[in-house]
Amino acid sequence: MTAKAFLVKDKIALIAGDSKLWTKPAAVALVEAGADVAIAAKDTPRLAEATEAVRKTGRKVLAIPTDVTKAAQVKTAVRRVVAEYGRIDILVNAGDVHFFQPFLKIRNAEWNKVMDYNFNSALSFCRAAGKQMLKQKKGRIINIVSGLSERGMVNGATYCVAMGSVLQLTRVLALEWAMKGITVNAVGTGWFAEADRPIDEAVARYIPVKRYGEPDEIGSLVVYLASDVTEFTTGQLMFVDGGVMAHA
């Protein structure tokens, strides 16, 4: 149950990017806090599932099949949201494609794809939706990143660089738009359970709370950062990670 102060009643949220983990929980958390949403992602059963989950709550939802790696399609998607709802109050960049290989085995095509899905998509959405938010003189941008935006990991070259780029973009835009009514923050994530991958017990033991997170658990922080009470909070990275980032 969302506290009254954090409600985003009748605000318009765009959840953008391809992610196994974050699209549905971010969308559902925002509609449960009172928002109407649009979801821009590749036309897959995952998009349909997220859309259906939102529809069940009774709030408005708009599914916009988008190749988020194409800037032109991103622009069109943002235009579509504005045409349909009249504005965009909240942008959540949820892009998160996993890819881990030894550095010297990574092909250019793979590197570019991962950068496209995890970073360039966020960049394009910040451009297109940011323009709209500047017109409105108000907006909330929330970039979902991994703890690997800050920490390194073996075989993680592409992924870590992409996530680190999103984090730096967060900080830069926070400063550039600080006087323009737009806050830009990042939600940092640790180890989360994926439906199609087994839990690694050694990793689970390493997490201070001794379990993986459930993707739904990021929802409340997304809502908090989307709400009106966080007007003074910008450029920040806040973690939902069961304590992983706190220990050695």
Binding site: K20, A41, K42, V97, Q101, V114, Y117
Partner: peptide, 9 residues
């Protein structure tokens, strides 16, 4: 090790 095929949407 996670291949791009596994990762892509």
């Amino acid at each position: 090790v996670v291949s791009l095929m596994e990762g892509l949407p």
